[in-house]
Design a protein around this nucleic acid. Sequence first.
DNA 1: GCGAGACTGTACCGATCGGTAAACATATTA
DNA 2: TAATATGTTTACCGATCGGTACAGTCTCGC
Lengths: 209, 209
Amino acid sequence: MARMVAERADAIAPLAEVFREHGYEGASLALIGKATGLGKGSLYHFFPNGKEEMVRAVLGEIGQWFEDAVYSPLRNESDVNGAIRAMLASTDQYFRSGRRVCLVGALAVANTRDLFAQAIRGYFVAWVDALQSALIRQGREADQSRLLAEEAVLAIQGAIILSRAMDDPAVFQRAIDQLRGRLVIENDTSNYEGTTDVSPQNEGRLVQD
Amino acid sequence: MARMVAERADAIAPLAEVFREHGYEGASLALIGKATGLGKGSLYHFFPNGKEEMVRAVLGEIGQWFEDAVYSPLRNESDVNGAIRAMLASTDQYFRSGRRVCLVGALAVANTRDLFAQAIRGYFVAWVDALQSALIRQGREADQSRLLAEEAVLAIQGAIILSRAMDDPAVFQRAIDQLRGRLVIENDTSNYEGTTDVSPQNEGRLVQD
DNA sequence: GCGAGACTGTACCGATCGGTAAACATATTA
DNA sequence: TAATATGTTTACCGATCGGTACAGTCTCGC
């Protein structure tokens, strides 16, 4: 049952990291081997279709993680504001305040986009849809929710780029704080702590643009 | 005076395009040669330090274009709202509504970031600073202007990613429209046409978060 | 112990990589 | 026209690329 040998699943996290850091073309089999501790033989045993299959496995894992940690709560959690706050906190952690690249976003920009177009699109569509669902359950109009959800997802991607370009994680955190102020409706009495002060001055205003 | 031979300057636009489409590592000398119509010999004659120098030349050209077309008007134009609208229009055109990648943003995400860190940082710092200057001249507070400027630049980068991932330029245009509503203060009587209707409901409200 | 799969290390493949060298063509100047 | 600067072509270099082949090793059910 408990094998001594490495498992395919163990390779996925290092794979994700090496693709994040070097991109699809930049991640050579030498780098991949170093990152995973696996030789070419093992790599092609686990992923017979080479790098493409590795990336697909990584994208699947990423999608599953976001589904469980972010999308599903956004769609199903009864505490909508809590789910949104959790999304922002998870996002901040996951992307390490912009120090960590979003692999899906990076692939969307690279010329390899076509190869993984479906997975890339699915990742973002699921995110926007789930967030829109949460915003609608807040009482917002469907159209406004769509716009706002798009805006939020897009801002996170942009924040990664800008904070990396500036080499300043605070840029990312400011963007997250900004989003919290825009997405969360402050009509409850529960106290929470944000990373910076968010003045609750938009109580009751459901529509805001 | 009028040379028959190609000039270095003529190579920069094709170079920019090939780096945009394939990234730094993905743009092989074969692709570069095909894009520019120049052989390796000519390329290394114009750019003795190879690809790195080519990218630096491209970044310089890009920076100059944005300086003239965007940053300078933002800093100096007396019609501040006009300069901001012009920035949004230029940006929409330049990035072809998200169909065209931002090379600087792409480099900021790739592992080649360190090589061009200074140029990348300079590009974004200049943009944010220029936009902040315009927002301050609108009458906004300095801190709010900083936040808003960062948010706008970040949103443009994110919009490129999202619209490419969705394969839908409308995503980019919606983001631009959203930004216009947030950045432009509608207190003048001049009529203009946006790409979509922007309800002027924030008259006089200088601070908004 | 033994066969069967699962896994791994290594040698190897043709292609392509970025970059160099130098002969060659062209254009400008004296 | 001779000399020079400028640009171009071509052949070539060693290194590395992604991928394959396959012999070998390990672990397990029997």
